[in-house]
Simulated assay, not measured.
Amino acid sequence: MPQDYNSTINLPKTLFDMRAGLPKKEPEMLKEWNADHLYEELMKHNEGKPRYVLHDGPPYANGNIHMGTALNKIIKDIIVRYKNMTGFQAPYVPGYDTHGLPIELKAMKQLVGKGEISKLELRKVCHEFATEHIDIMGE
């Protein structure tokens, strides 16, 4: 019969759980942070300090999120947090690149075989395509 060694190990006492369980905990943490207006408090704390704004431009809203998109967001997030901690008021200003050739090419793929369309119709399809992917990325 195997012996249970759990009671013989001298583990540090902490309020942190031994298992992260992030998928369950994150929604609760976000709810708490929103209720406490944590972001607004940070901006208020840094009021009057020099402003640093990093407009979060791309990603192109031309498809699903991928590792490059995540890396881009993570690097910008690190920069903004660093600036907030080093004496700046650095608000997070998100955005999407919803114009240009990448979106037009993806939208045109949807139109293959539908014949000639006007420039106005192409713009409408591009707008719908970009808006759809902004919603997906927002989720």
Rank of each mutant, 00 (worst) to 15 (best):
G21P: 00
G21K: 15
L22H: 12
L22P: 00
P23I: 03
P23D: 13
P23W: 04
K24R: 14
K24F: 02
K24E: 12
K25Q: 13
E26R: 15
E26F: 08
P27Y: 04
M29V: 10
M29W: 14
L30T: 12
L30I: 13
K31Q: 11
W33V: 01
N34M: 04
D36N: 12
D36Q: 13
D36F: 00
H37T: 05
H37P: 00
L38Q: 08
Y39D: 10
L42T: 07
K44C: 00
K44S: 07
K44R: 13
K44N: 10
K44G: 02
H45R: 15
N46Q: 08
G48W: 02
K49Q: 10
K49R: 11
P50Y: 03
P50F: 02
V53R: 14
V53T: 14
V53K: 14
H55Q: 12
G57W: 03
G57K: 09
G57I: 03
P58K: 06
P59Q: 06
P59C: 05
N62I: 02
N62C: 04
N62Q: 06
N62V: 01
G63E: 09
G63R: 08
G63C: 05
G63M: 06
N64C: 01
N64L: 07
I65P: 01
I65L: 12
I65A: 15
H66Y: 02
H66K: 07
M67A: 11
G68L: 02
T69N: 09
T69I: 01
A70W: 05
L71M: 12
L71K: 14
N72D: 11
N72Q: 13
N72E: 11
N72R: 06
I74Q: 05
I75F: 08
I78L: 13
I78S: 10
I79H: 06
I79E: 06
I79K: 07
V80G: 08
R81V: 00
Y82P: 00
K83G: 00
K83S: 01
M85K: 13
T86C: 05
G87N: 09
G87M: 10
F88E: 11
Q89L: 02
A90Q: 08
P91T: 09
Y92Q: 13
Y92W: 14
Y92R: 15
G95Q: 13
G95Y: 10
Y96N: 10
Y96F: 15
Y96P: 01
Y96W: 15
D97G: 03
D97I: 04
D97H: 08
T98W: 02
H99W: 05
H99S: 09
H99T: 08
L101K: 12
L101H: 09
P102A: 04
P102R: 09
P102N: 06
L105F: 10
K106Y: 00
K106I: 02
K109Q: 14
L111N: 10
V112R: 15
V112D: 12
V112G: 01
V112I: 12
G113S: 07
G113L: 05
K114R: 14
K114E: 09
K114A: 04
K114P: 00
G115I: 04
G115K: 11
E116A: 13
I117G: 08
